[in-house]
Design a protein around this nucleic acid. Structure first.
Length: 931
DNA sequence: AACGTCACG
DNA sequence: GACGTACGTGACGTTT
C-alpha cells in the first residue's frame, strides 16, 4: 500500500518550539503569528519536497487524557500558554486546512500517541516514516524505517542520535525516562536517579521491570533503598511515558496522499496573516494550484465521514436567502457527529436556551450549535411534556448529564473557537453545569466595538441589519405577556427552528465582524480590552454579593414609619392632603396655591419643576419644602433600595446577582441592572446605611479598591497639560492646585471653600461645563463663574486646545477615540439646533476621558483573575462601579490581595499613560466600612 | 411608554 | 445671536 515516505508532523510540539524560537510577528490585525508563520513555512517546504509523498499534521485534542487517570498530576505544572501564543492555536489549524493538509486529532489522546499509532500502522505496511518533531518523548519510536527530523535545526534523528541523547537504544528510552522522570511533564520518576544513572541501570538490566526484580544486586545501599521504596512510582512513570499506539485510527493512511493547496483558499489566509513572501510564492505559481482541491476536503481526511458536503461550499454562493439545514439532536450518536464536526471546523457557534432572562436564576433547556453557515443543530435537554393535565410523554431527548459530559471537552478545547452572542449569559448558565468555555469570541462585543451606540446589538436587529435576514423572534415562539410560555414548553420543531437559527446567525455575524475588525483596525481593542472581560464578568455575576436581609428589613421599617410621619407633616403644612409622589400635584401646590416663587418649568409637560436643585434653595425659608425633600429622600431609599433589594436576594445562593451590561453605553463603561449595584447610596448618612447590608461571610472581609481621580489624571494626560501632569507626578492635591491657579490663593493658605469651588471647576472641565452650569453648581453669579473659567483656561491653555480638537474630531469622523482606540460615536455633532449641537460637543469632550478610564478598568478586570490565581489567592471579584472593584477576601489574604489588585489596576494602562495611576483600598465587614 | 426625579461614578 | 445650560448610567412612581 505504502508508496513512499509518510511524514507525520507533530503540530502541537511544533507550535511551542516555533513560538519561542522565532521573533515576534504580527498579522494584519496585530495578532501574533510567529509560530503560525514557522509552521506554514515548514509545511510549504514539505509540500515542495519531492521526497515526501504523504503528509499529515497531528494535534493534541485537549489537555486532559488517559494519563491523568493514571496520574492526576500529569503535566500539572504546565503554566498556561503565553498570551501571544493562545490565538495561534486556532490559527495553526486554520493554516493546516488552508494548506489542504490532513489535520488529525482525537479526544483523549495526545498527538504523540496518534503519531505512534500511525507510525506503527505504516511500518506494518512495510513503509517508511519521518516524524517532524524534536520532542524527546517521540524518540522511543525510532527504529528501522522510522526516523525523526528536527524542524527547527533541520537535523535528522536516528538511532545514533537517540543513543547520544539517552545513552541507550531507542527501544529502552521509555525505561530510562521512567527512572529519571520529567519535570516538564511532571512525570515523577525515581527520586535521586538522573539520566546518567538511569541509562547505566537500564543498560545493565534491560528494563525497569527486570531491574526491579534484581534490586538485590545493586551495590550502592542508598540507591537500592530508593528504588525499593519507589517501585510503584517507577512503574507508573513508565506507563506515563510509553506512547499508546492501539487506538483506532481516526483516518486511514490512504487519506494522507499529498495534495496541493487551493490558491483560492490559501492566498486569502496568507494575506490575512501578512505572510508576504508566501503570498509571492503563490502568485509566482510556486505554491498551490488554482483548480480542484476543494477547501473542505481536510474535514473528511480528519476521520469523520464528510457530513455535510454541500454545505461546506455554501458560503461561496452569495445567495440573499439563507439556506438552512437544521437538525434536531436527540441521541448520542448524532450529538457525537456534531461535536466531531465542530472539532474539525475549529470554530463553532453556541447558544443556550433557558427558562428566563435572568442568568442567575434561569435553568438550561437546550443548546444549539452551528459549524458552518446554514448548518446548525439544536440539542433539547430540559423540554417538558406539553398539554398540561392531559400531558403526553416528555419528548425524547438526551439526558442532561450525558450531554453536558459530551460537550465539556469541546467547550474547553483550546483548538476550537466557541462563538456566542452575549456569551456572558451562556457562561453563567453553563457554569452551573461545570462547563467552561474557552477560547471564545462574542459577536455582541464585536458589534459593540465596531458600531458602539450607532445601532443596537440584539441578534434580531444585527441579523436584519447585516445579513438582511429576519429571524424568528422569541415572542413568536413563546408568546408574550400573560400567555407567554417557558422555552421548556416549546414544541421541539419550533425550538429547533428558533434555536438553530440563532447559532447559525451568530456564526455568520462572526465571520462578518471578524473581517470588519481587521479592516477597521479594532482587533486590538476587541481582543485585549473587551473579549477577556466576558468570562470575568460572568464569574462576578455568578458570584454575586451577600446581602443581609435583616438589615434591609429593619431599614425598610424605619424608613416606612418616618415617611408616614413626614407625609403627615407636609399635608399639615399644606393645609390639605395630596399625592406627595406626584411632581405635578406638588408643583401646583407649592408654586400655585402657596405662591412660592418657582424656579422653572419642566421641559415637555410644562409643569413646575420640583427637582431638588429647584427646591433646595427654598428649603431654609419654607419648612414645607424641607419636609418634602426629606420625604423624597427617605421614600427613594425605601422603594429603590431597601424594599427592592430584598426581592432581589437569590433564594438558591442567598446573595444578590446583578447583571452587568457590557455593550450598552456610549463611552465603554459597564452598566448594572436587576438590581443596579452601581448606584447604591453613599453620599448621605441615611443612604450609607444601605451599604451596611452588603456584607462578607464569616471569615472574609469586603475589600474595595478604587482608582483615585482617574478621570482628572487622564485629562492631564490626554490634553497633555504639563503643569497638571507634574502635579500628579509629585502627588500634589490637584484641587488645591487649581484653586491656587484660578483664585490666586497660595497652597499653604488654602481654605476649604476655595478648594471646594476649584474641585467643582475641575469636574466641570471634564464635562464641558458652561458658566451657567458652574454658577448653579457652586452657587455664585454667572459672571463670577465666567471669570473663574476664563482664569482656568488662561492658566492651562492646553485644555481649550484639547476641547477644540475633540469637537473637530467628532465633526470630521462622527466619533472621538479613547487612548485605546475605542470609538465613541457622537450623534448630533453637526445638528442645526445649537442646543443639540452643544450637547454633542460636550459629549465629544467628555467621552475620551470617561471612555479611557473605562478601557483601563476593563483591562485591569480582564487580568485580575489570573493575577490572583498566580498569587494563589482566593479573593472573589463581585462588583465593579466604574472606578472601583469590590472583592470578597478571606481574612488571611487581605494584604496580599490588596497588593495584587493595586498592582494590576495601576499597571493596566500598559505604559500608555505617563501620569501615575493610583489605586486605594478599603477593608470592612460591610461595603459601608470598606468604602 | 413617557416623564420627572434621584441614586451612583 | 440662537438655544439651553456639566458627562455617563438605571429604577421608581405617576401620568398619559
Amino acid at each position: 500500500m505504502a508508496d513512499g515516505t509518510l511524514y507525520l508532523v507533530d503540530g502541537s510540539g511544533y507550535i511551542f518550539r516555533a513560538f519561542h524560537a522565532l521573533p515576534p510577528m504580527a498579522s494584519l490585525d496585530g495578532t501574533p503569528v510567529n509560530a503560525v508563520f514557522g509552521f506554514t513555512n515548514m509545511i510549504t517546504k514539505l509540500l515542495a519536497d519531492a521526497g515526501s509523498d504523504r503528509l499529515a499534521v497531528i494535534f493534541d485534542a485537549a489537555r486532559v487524557n488517559f494519563r491523568n487517570d493514571i496520574y492526576p498530576d500529569y503535566k500539572a505544572h504546565r503554566p498556561p500558554a503565553p498570551e501571544e501564543l493562545v490565538p495561534q492555536f486556532a490559527l495553526i489549524r486554520e493554516a493546516t486546512r488552508a494548506l489542504n493538509v490532513p489535520c488529525i486529532e482525537m479526544e483523549g489522546y495526545e498527538a504523540d500517541d496518534l503519531i505512534a499509532a500511525y507510525a506503527a500502522a505504516e511500518i506494518a505496511e512495510g513503509g517508511k516514516v519521518v516524524i517532524i518533531s524534536s520532542d524527546k518523548d517521540l524518540m522511543q519510536l525510532v527504529r528501522p524505517g522510522v526516523t525523526m527530523l528536527d524542524p527547527m535545526k533541520n537535523r535528522h534523528i536516528a538511532e545514533p542520535e537517540v543513543f547520544e541523547k539517552f545513552g541507550v537504544t531507542p527501544d529502552k528510552v521509555v525505561d530510562v525516562q521512567a527512572l529519571c522522570g520529567d519535570s516538564v511533564d511532571n512525570v515523577p520518576g525515581v527520586p535521586g536517579i538522573g539520566p546518567k544513572t538511569a541509562a547505566e541501570l537500564i543498560n545493565l538490566y534491560g528494563s525497569v521491570e527486570n531491574l526491579l526484580e534484581h534490586l538485590g544486586e545493586i551495590k550502592q545501599p542508598k540507591r537500592r533503598e530508593t528504588l525499593e521504596n519507589n517501585r510503584e512510582l517507577a512503574l507508573i512513570s513508565k506507563q506515563l511515558v510509553s506512547l499508546k499506539a492501539d487506538m483506532p485510527l481516526p483516518a486511514p493512511l490512504t487519506d494522507f496522499e499529498k495534495r496541493m493547496p487551493d490558491t483560492a483558499v490559501l492566498r486569502p489566509f496568507l494575506e490575512r496573516m501578512n505572510f508576504r513572501s508566501l503570498v509571492g510564492k503563490v502568485d509566482r505559481g510556486e505554491l498551490g494550484k488554482t483548480v480542484g482541491g476543494r477547501p473542505g476536503s481536510a474535514i473528511s481526511a480528519a476521520g469523520a465521514p464528510d457530513l455535510f458536503p454541500a454545505a461546506v461550499e455554501a458560503p461561496k454562493v452569495a445567495a440573499p436567502a439563507i439556506a438552512q439545514t437544521y437538525e434536531l439532536v436527540t441521541d448520542l450518536a448524532t450529538l457525537d457527529k456534531w461535536i466531531a464536526a465542530a472539532m474539525q471546523a475549529g470554530v463553532v457557534a453556541v447558544d443556550t436556551e433557558t427558562t428566563g432572562l435572568d442568568a442567575s436564576a434561569a435553568d438550561l433547556i437546550g443548546v444549539s450549535m452551528s459549524v458552518a453557515p446554514g448548518l446548525a443543530c439544536y440539542i433539547p435537554l430540559g423540554h417538558r411534556s406539553q398539554g398540561g393535565l392531559l400531558a403526553e410523554a416528555p419528548p425524547k431527548q438526551i439526558a442532561m448529564q450525558e450531554a453536558v459530559d459530551r460537550l465539556r471537552p469541546l467547550l474547553a478545547d483550546e483548538g476550537v473557537l466557541k462563538v456566542g452572542h452575549n456569551l456572558k449569559y451562556d457562561m453563567v448558565i453553563l457554569a452551573r453545569h461545570d462547563l467552561t468555555v474557552a477560547p471564545y469570541d462574542d459577536t455582541l462585543l464585536m458589534s459593540y466595538v465596531l458600531d458602539g451606540a450607532r445601532n443596537g446589538h440584539g441578534m434580531d436587529e444585527l441579523s436584519d441589519l447585516h445579513l438582511g435576514h429576519k429571524t424568528i423572534t422569541y415572542e413568536e415562539v413563546c408568546g408574550k405577556g400573560k400567555t407567554q410560555i417557558s422555552f421548556a414548553e416549546v414544541p421541539l420543531d419550533r425550538a429547533l427552528a428558533y434555536a438553530a437559527e440563532d447559532a447559525d446567525v451568530t456564526l455568520r455575524l462572526h465571520s462578518l465582524f471578524k473581517r470588519r475588525l481587521i479592516e477597521e483596525k479594532q482587533v486590538q481593542l476587541y481582543e485585549r480590552t473587551e473579549r477577556p472581560i466576558v468570562s470575568v464578568v460572568a464569574l462576578m455575576e455568578d458570584t454575586g454579593i451577600r446581602v443581609e436581609p435583616d438589615v434591609l428589613r429593619r431599614l425598610s421599617h424605619d424608613f416606612g414609619t418616618r415617611a408616614v410621619e413626614m407625609e403627615k407633616k407636609v399635608h399639615e403644612l399644606a393645609g390639605r392632603a395630596f399625592n406627595l409622589g406626584s411632581p405635578k400635584q406638588l408643583g401646583e401646590l407649592l408654586f400655585g396655591e402657596l405662591g412660592i416663587k418657582h424656579g422653572g418649568k419642566t421641559g415637555k409637560t410644562d409643569n413646575y419643576s420640583t427637582a431638588s436643585d429647584v427646591l433646595e434653595p427654598l428649603a431654609a425659608e419654607y419648612p414645607i419644602v424641607r419636609a418634602v425633600l426629606d420625604w423624597r429622600q427617605i421614600t427613594k431609599l425605601k422603594s429603590t433600595y431597601t424594599d427592592a433589594l430584598l426581592t432581589q436576594i437569590n433564594s438558591r445562593t442567598g446573595r444578590v446577582h446583578t447583571s452587568f451590561g457590557l455593550a450598552g453605553t456610549s463611552t465603554g463603561r459597564f452598566s448594572s441592572s436587576d438590581p443596579n449595584l452601581q448606584n447604591i447610596p453613599t453620599r448621605t448618612e441615611e443612604g450609607r446605611k444601605i451599604r451596611s447590608a452588603f456584607v462578607a461571610p464569616e471569615g472574609s472581609k469586603i475589600v474595595s479598591v478604587d482608582y483615585s481621580q482617574i478621570e482628572l489624571r487622564l485629562l492631564a494626560e490626554i490634553a497633555d497639560i504639563a503643569a497638571l501632569k507634574q502635579a500628579f507626578a509629585d502627588g500634589i492635591d490637584i484641587h488645591a492646585l487649581t484653586a491656587s491657579q484660578v483664585f490666586g490663593v497660595p497652597l499653604d493658605q488654602m481654605d476649604k471653600d476655595t478648594r471646594r469651588k476649584a474641585k467643582a471647576i475641575n469636574f466641570g472641565i471634564i464635562y464641558g461645563m458652561s458658566a451657567f452650569g458652574l454658577a448653579a453648581n457652586i452657587n455664585v453669579s454667572q459672571s463670577e463663574a465666567s471669570s473663574f473659567i476664563k482664569a482656568y483656561f488662561e492658566r492651562y491653555p492646553g485644555i481649550k486646545a484639547f476641547m477644540d480638537a475633540r469637537k473637530e474630531e467628532a465633526r470630521t469622523f462622527g466619533y472621538v477615540e479613547t487612548l485605546f482606540g475605542r470609538r465613541c460615536f457622537v450623534p448630533g455633532i453637526a445638528d442645526k439646533n445649537p442646543a443639540r449641537r452643544n450637547f454633542a460637543e460636550r459629549q465629544a469632550i467628555n467621552a475620551p476621558i470617561q471612555g479611557t478610564a473605562a478601557d483601563i478598568m476593563k483591562r485591569a478586570l480582564g487580568r485580575m483573575p489570573q493575577a490572583l490565581a498566580e498569587a494563589k489567592l482566593n479573593a472573589k471579584l463581585m462588583v465593579t462601579v466604574h472606578d472601583e472593584l469590590l472583592f470578597e477576601v478571606p481574612e488571611a489574604e487581605i494584604e496580599t490581595t490588596i497588593a495584587v489588585a493595586r498592582r494590576v489596576m495601576e499597571g493596566a494602562h500598559d505604559g500608555k499613560v505617563s501620569v501615575p495611576l493610583v489605586a486605594e483600598a478599603g477593608i470592612g465587614n460591610s461595603w459601608a466600612e470598606a468604602h
